Simulated scan of single mutants.
Amino acid sequence: MNKRTFFDIDGTADMDVVIGNPPYVRYQPHRGADRQRSRLAAKAAGVELNELASIWAAFAVHATSFLAPGGRMALVLPAELMFVNYAGVVRAMLLERFATVHLAVFEERLFADAQEEVVLLLAEGYQQGPSGHFQPHQFRNAQDLAQLGSGTRHEPRRAADRWTGSLVGLEAQGILAAASAQGHFATLKSWGETSLGAVTGNNKWFTFSSDEIHELGLPEADLIRISPPGSRHLRGLELDQPGWEQSAGPWSGDLSVQALGRTERRGRTSCGQRRAVQRGPGLQVQGALAVVAGAGAFGAGPVHDLYER
């Protein structure tokens, strides 16, 4: 028995099959020497992971270094393999190095007690790629795996592109392609795009709860409503001009002298409904100007991803 950290073991390039269920530890707790070790192992296997990569990504990459040419790999991975940005290099590696790649996704949770949505990755023909495509299989639960079959074929435009488009059926893809060709659909970019102008990293300083607004006596003219994290507060599928104005609120110019004095008592709030103190074309935050000129709304909370148009 070889008892060592997986990333401390050099790949042997002589295994016919690698099977694994790597840990799904995210990058926040996966830090320090452990993160450095995992990233170096992935780099040695030819893939450069960024600082946001969870540990499973390094595990999947390093696992390939144990395979002999023509070898196979089967891993239980989080469903984020299909769509997160940092996994783009992992998706590209799979399509470039393996002759065939199968991906099994499930309607029901594979592990009832686990919080993570998972997929099964089955890759064959190591160093016999590129395949340039993968074959997705959609199942209700694990019992349906006996009917694996050949699946459908999905070929991303670029090797690192997201794989979520593969979940759309061929009939639906054909309908969309025909409707797009006739001009019935347009890309979101033709309507507009979102832009993250600046991040302060300290929402608690410049946002206030309703109770704090009342306690500080801040005038309504010095406040602008923010959009809290998530989308539960949004209603319906359409956002018209009145709804936008009600959500974002109008600008009213510089802060009043009254508000400037009282906001020296910096807010310390927990999550909930908050509003940001506005200041002309930006927010004065502990001496650092967060430029938001022309902004339509403010948001509070972590930004996990900016979706492609």
Rank of each mutant, 00 (worst) to 15 (best):
N2I: 11
N2R: 13
K3V: 14
G11Y: 08
V18C: 12
V18L: 12
V25T: 13
Q28W: 13
R35E: 12
V47A: 10
E48S: 11
L49V: 06
N50Q: 09
E51D: 14
A53P: 07
S54E: 15
I55K: 15
A60W: 05
A63S: 14
M73I: 15
A74Y: 06
V76C: 09
N85A: 12
N85Y: 11
A87E: 04
G88V: 05
A92D: 11
F98L: 04
R109D: 09
A112L: 12
D113L: 05
A114W: 05
Q115C: 02
E116M: 14
E117R: 14
E117C: 10
L145S: 01
Q147P: 00
A160R: 03
L167Q: 09
L167K: 03
G169V: 03
E171R: 04
G192Y: 03
G197R: 14
T200P: 01
W205G: 07
H214S: 14
G217I: 05
E220T: 08
E220W: 04
D222H: 01
I226T: 15
S227I: 12
G230K: 10
L234D: 03
G236P: 01
L237Q: 14
L239Q: 13
P250F: 06
W251I: 05
V257K: 12
L260I: 05
T263Y: 03
G267R: 08
R268S: 08
V285I: 15
A288Y: 09
A293I: 06
A295L: 07
Y307P: 00
